[in-house]
Design a protein around this nucleic acid. Structure first.
Length: 319
DNA sequence: ATTGTAGGTCACCTTACCTCA
DNA sequence: GCTGAGGTAAGGTGACCTACA
């Protein structure tokens, strides 16, 4: 026969309505025999809602007589009749839609038996039921996608807000470090060269403390807002042995008790405390467990796709 | 066991019609 | 009455699966 099922079920009735062989095929295809819509001796498929009636004038009159007979059965409620006018689309009745919706809630896939049963109960053609389920699944999918989008957008907005807050916090801390650096620089100059303490041109030959603070500052500047992974963090000036500012390392042994003066030396007087300072700067205050707070709402399959947040900002939802 | 075909369903996209502001 | 937007039934197509010869 060579007719694909999808074509046999949609075939133009003009071509087949007097063909008994095709009739049986079409009936088998759509289970028309099971349907209450079956009209003896009429076009076997009787897919009035899907039929192309473009050339009515050339049509055999007997066929339309049968159509008209069927139409008359719909008498007073023509608009709701499933045998609507050719070429016109009819919306399903509200009660039909309601029934289908309930059925869809139970199971959004349609077994053949269920399709026939629904078609019988709703006075629809099985194909109409199948199409309704297909369209309904498509609508459902669209809604799910919209909901997912809203969720992801909310997550993104939250991340953005937190990121901006972190940036502000970072800026504030940088300013504090600058202030401390200036203060400390003045004191060191006074100590190293009491006579030339205020000479701006001649500076302390080795100002390890101020350099160390500069390293802290750079660490805050370069690392804090980026949440980079270990590999990229290692490239930052803070840990870069090639860095001109930190070639002595931020954890170089040094007595920093005077760095913060008598009023601030209690917790930072030992070398170990310098390490603690750098760690605390880089972890607790600047990185308040970002990985925990930022991603707690995100599912494993969320759309961060494993990219750093600052990178996502450039391609992920441009608002 | 393998292969070809028919029949069925699905997702996806498109079209055509309807409704409403 | 006209019109454009949005919703929805249905058409078209390709992919996939299953049964069967």
């Amino acid at each position: 026969m060579g007719l694909s099922p999808r074509y046999s079920s949609h075939i133009n009735i003009m071509e087949v309505y007097n063909d008994s062989h095709m009739a049986s095929v079409l009936l088998k295809d759509e289970n028309i025999l099971d349907s209450t819509l079956w009209v003896p001796n009429s076009s076997p498929s009787f897919h009035a809602s899907m039929v192309n009636f473009e050339d009515e004038n050339t049509m055999g009159r007997s066929f339309f007589t049968q159509i008209d007979d069927k139409m008359e059965n719909c008498n007073d409620d023509f608009n709701n009749c499933n045998y609507h006018q050719p070429g016109k689309k009819r919306r399903l009745r509200p009660d039909q839609v309601q029934f289908l919706e309930k059925s869809f809630e139970v199971e959004n896939k349609l077994e053949p038996e269920r399709k026939i049963q629904l078609a019988k109960e709703l006075d629809l053609q099985p194909r109409q039921v199948a199409i309704w389920f297909q369209n309904r699944r498509a609508r459902y999918k669209t809604k799910v996608l919209e909901k997912d989008y809203e969720k992801l957008k909310a997550s993104f907005d939250k991340l953005k807000t937190e990121y901006e807050a972190l940036c502000k916090q970072n800026e504030k801390m940088k300013n504090e470090v600058n202030l401390l650096t200036e203060k400390m620089g003045g004191r060191e100059n006074k100590r190293a060269r009491p006579g030339l303490s205020d000479d701006p041109i001649i500076s302390s030959p080795v100002d390890s403390q101020s350099e160390k603070l500069s390293c802290y500052q750079e660490a805050v500047t370069n690392v804090a807002p980026k949440q980079e992974d270990a590999s990229s963090s290692a490239k930052s000036d803070m840990f870069d042995s090639d860095s001109p500012h930190c070639n002595h390392s931020a954890v170089e042994p040094a007595n920093s008790s005077h760095v913060f003066g008598p009023e601030a030396n209690s917790d930072f007087s030992q070398d170990e405390d310098d390490d603690n300072l750098s760690r605390s700067l880089l972890t607790s205050s600047v990185f308040p467990k970002i990985e925990d707070e930022f991603y707690e709402d995100l599912q494993p399959n969320s759309c961060n796709l494993g990219f750093p947040v600052q990178d996502q900002g450039t391609w992920f939802w441009q608002f």
